[in-house]
């Protein structure tokens, strides 16, 4: 499934994390420098070393893989397909896992989770983008959300995936904005993805731990 990100005519400046035996090393797979920096800083701050993904094998070897999102799947593909000049990274790890996105598209996603990523509707009286600190409605007892308590988490996005009967088993939390109760995080097995920004300033992050 990672081929989607690797298959560009120019290798992304990038980050993928892998764990190497006993040492605390995280493999980071990223699209571009800017957005990933704050995530790198956060991982280092927590006492982990980072190893960037250089080859597809690095991904297979990784025990912890951090996959930062990008801002718009379509824009990103186009960028790499073009002159590869600037990467407008930012937020999309979670959205990438769905069937398709209307952001800069429609474009196909990885199709792991049923559903289409669509924009918030500002005609319904909500401000778009959804920027700021919002609360989660916890849907699943998942360890990474253990400390959330009553705290809010930081979002910045204009597109969102909505819960449905088909994707319900993936959802670990939702967030309410206007009439929308969109998907804020997913968890299944060792795969975690969040729509919010755990590092508070970088992109949206998708995590996966190879089984």
């Amino acid at each position: 499934m990672w081929d989607f990100a690797m298959n560009h005519n120019k290798p992304p400046r990038s980050a993928s994390v892998f764990l190497d035996g006993s040492t605390q090393v995280v493999t980071l797979r990223g699209y571009c420098g800017g957005n990933v920096r704050s995530l790198r800083n956060a991982i280092k701050y927590l006492g982990f070393d980072i190893k960037d993904v250089q080859t597809p094998e690095d991904i297979l070897k990784a025990k912890r893989l951090v996959f930062p999102g990008v801002h718009g799947v379509g824009a990103k593909q186009e960028r790499y397909g073009g002159n590869g000049s600037a990467e407008w990274l930012i937020c999309l790890g979670l959205q990438l896992l769905f069937e398709s996105s209307e952001e800069n598209g429609p474009v196909k996603g990885l199709g792991l989770i049923p559903g289409v990523v669509r924009p918030f509707d500002s005609s319904k009286g909500i401000r778009v983008p959804h920027i700021g600190w919002n609360a989660l409605g916890i849907a699943k007892d998942t360890q990474i959300l253990d400390d959330i308590g009553k705290s809010h988490v930081y979002f910045v996005h204009s597109y969102r995936a909505m819960p449905s009967d088909e994707n319900r088993e993936w959802i670990s939390s939702t967030c309410k904005y206007g009439d929308d109760n969109f998907i804020a995080s997913i968890q299944r097995g060792n795969v975690h993805a969040v729509q919010f920004h755990p590092e508070k300033s970088g992109g949206i992050v998708t995590f996966s731990q190879p089984i």
């Binding site: 956060a42 927590l46 912890r64 849907a139 699943k140 007892d141 360890q143 400390d147 959330i148 755990p198």
Partner: peptide
């Protein structure tokens, strides 16, 4: 936010107590 990241990176860190987690699931957004 950092705790979410830390708990992913280090899943062996202890879990919060069950009753606190159940409360979390029940609370309104």
């Amino acid at each position: 936010g950092l705790s979410v990241l830390r708990r992913f990176l280090n899943p062996k860190s202890g879990r919060t107590q069950l009753h606190a987690r159940q409360k979390l699931v029940q609370r309104n957004a």
